[in-house]
Nucleic acid binder design. Structure first.
Length: 367
DNA sequence: AAGCCGGGCAACCGCCATATC
DNA sequence: GGATATGGCGGTTGCCCGGCT
């Protein structure tokens, strides 16, 4: 290939770009659940998607895979990321390897949007405090706009870093301009905590291992909160090279705000001995990818039923690697309107969108 | 109420590494 | 060993949404 490095997996004239629609998501999930993803380039065509293979891969890895941990980063995760970044730099995939269920893209985003600023503030803070005082006293003040709980969204925390925090702020990367006032994520916790003038309470605020951050939309499903807290966590010294978080992320579905994932949650209890129909050649890959660890046959069937689809069942159909609409007997037919489904903003927030879309006579009849 | 602005994040782009022929 | 195909990674962009004026 003369143009090494160029992504030639797709013809830009032919592929769809931009946000993924629910229908596309479903197609991708359906296909991968049935066939695995041994060949990303061929996948979109076989799955009936007008997408670039790389786009499918990214969508799967970063969002649709059941292995992806949905939800917010805990304070500990954030601290771990900062430490790892200090040691590894922008090796996002390496950093992500320490956080099962977290993707490099997600960690990269968290770093760029939150942690980089926080670190900059800490560095600045440490400079300020070291020049003005040698005291190691933590002087955290809290400016509340009247609400009494964290999570109300209005609290500003003027934060001078602790010794522990400043000790981590050794990154030599350029600092972003920032003030010493940090807008704490209003949802940086699992449950409201009373704020008083009690310094102890303030300390808890800044060190609690139960707080979670980056709640993207504020609706937290308690069943999906993945606690990283453990006794003495705040004093825990991190391994420089390896942070073993295995066993912490055991729930493959962690979208705290998405009915889509909630619905999938509902089907976990239904996971059964249903045989996963796989192409033989794909099975090893499928299993080694970890996909096989999560038996999603039932929720897949549910989704397919919701859209009036049923999975290919016979060997020939499987070899054809296509999902057949109900009633179709030959070549797979992806309803035209299926691709014309709108992509409403925030569809992620409600799986009802599938039902709503289906409830439309024209859409339903298209299937 | 409407417009503006900034933050957050999903997705894309281009390059590199590795596998395969 | 070279050419090509594919996967993977990191940087960046652009859209959406909530808060502010």
């Amino acid at each position: 290939m003369g143009e090494k490095g160029k992504s030639l997996c797709c013809d830009k004239e032919q592929v769809r770009r931009g946000p993924w629609s629910p229908a596309e998501d479903l197609k991708l999930v359906t296909y991968i659940q049935k066939n695995g993803h041994h060949n990303w380039r061929a996948l979109p065509r076989r799955a009936g998607l007008m997408r670039c293979g790389k786009s499918c891969r990214l969508r799967w890895i970063n969002y649709l895979s059941p292995d992806v941990k949905r939800g917010n980063f805990t304070r500990e995760e954030e601290e771990s990321i900062m430490k790892l970044h200090e040691a590894l730099g922008n090796k996002w995939s390496t950093i992500a390897a320490h956080f099962p269920g977290r993707t490099d893209n997600e960690i990269k985003n968290v770093w760029n949007t939150h942690l980089k600023k926080r670190l900059a503030c800490r560095n600045l803070s440490s400079l300020t405090s070291s020049s003005s005082s040698s005291s190691s006293t933590t002087t955290t003040t809290l400016l509340s706009s009247g609400k009494t709980t964290v999570g109300g969204g209005d609290e500003l925390i003027e934060h001078q870093s602790t010794d522990q925090e400043t000790s981590m702020a050794t990154n030599n990367k350029p600092h972003e301009p920032c003030s010493l006032t940090i807008q704490e994520n209003p949802n940086h916790q699992d449950s409201p905590m009373e704020l008083t003038n009690d310094p102890k309470g303030l300390k808890e605020l800044t060190t609690s291992s139960n707080v979670s951050s980056n709640e993207s939309n504020g609706s937290s499903n308690s069943s999906q909160v993945v606690g990283m807290s453990r006794p003495g966590a705040e004093e825990r010294q991190m391994d420089d090279d390896l942070i073993d978080l295995s066993g912490i992320f055991d729930n493959p579905f962690h979208e705290s705000d998405s009915d889509f994932w909630n619905m999938l949650d509902d089907f976990q209890p239904l996971q059964s001995n249903e045989v996963q129909v796989l192409h033989e050649a794909d099975e090893a890959n499928y299993q080694s990818s970890g996909l096989g660890q999560v038996e999603n046959g039932n929720w897949l069937s549910y989704l397919q039923n919701e859209l009036g689809f049923e999975a290919a069942a016979t060997e020939s159909e499987i070899n054809n690697q296509e999902i057949l609409p109900k009633g179709a007997t030959e070549q797979p037919v992806i309803p035209e309107t299926f691709d014309k489904m709108p992509n409403p903003a925030g569809y992620d927030e409600s799986m009802d969108y599938f039902q709503t879309w289906l409830s439309s006579p024209e859409n339903n009849s298209a299937i």
